[in-house]
Simulated scan of single mutants.
Amino acid sequence: MNIEDREELISHLEKMLESLKFGSITLVVQDGKIVQIEKNEKVRLQSNKKR
């Protein structure tokens, strides 16, 4: 991985991390190289039930 690719990867990861409150970021690797980044975000809804 060259420096430009590494900087682009780090930039994408930083942007994803800044916007993520709950969830995960997955790096997909093929032939020893990162080919995809996936962000899975969880949104928790509060119940409106009154007891």
Rank of each mutant, 00 (worst) to 15 (best):
M16V: 11
N40P: 05
L13V: 13
F22H: 12
R44Q: 08
V43I: 14
E7L: 12
E38L: 14
M1C: 09
N48M: 13
L27N: 08
I10L: 12
E4S: 04
K49I: 04
N40K: 13
D5S: 05
V28C: 08
N40W: 01
S47K: 04
H12E: 13
N40R: 13
K21M: 08
E38V: 13
E18P: 06
I10H: 00
D5R: 04
I10P: 03
N2L: 06
T26L: 05
D5E: 11
V43E: 14
K33Q: 02
Q36N: 15
I3Q: 12
I34C: 07
L9I: 03
T26C: 06
D5G: 04
S24A: 15
K39Y: 07
T26F: 06
K15H: 14
K42T: 10
S47M: 02
Q46Y: 04
K33A: 03
V28G: 08
D31W: 01
I25C: 06
V29R: 02
K42V: 09
E38A: 11
Q46P: 01
I3T: 11
N40E: 15
I37W: 02
V29E: 10
R6D: 04
K39M: 13
K15P: 05
M1Q: 08
I10Q: 00
V28H: 10
E8R: 13
K49W: 01
N48Q: 09
M16T: 05
E14Y: 12
S24K: 10
K33N: 03
K39P: 06
R6V: 06
K21S: 14
R51I: 06
K50L: 15
L17R: 12
G32F: 09
L27S: 02
N40F: 09
K39H: 07
R6G: 06
I3K: 10
R44L: 10
K33M: 00
I10F: 12
L45D: 07
L17I: 14
S11K: 14
T26P: 05
K50Y: 09
M16Q: 12
E38R: 13
L9S: 02
V35D: 00
Q30F: 07
K42M: 10
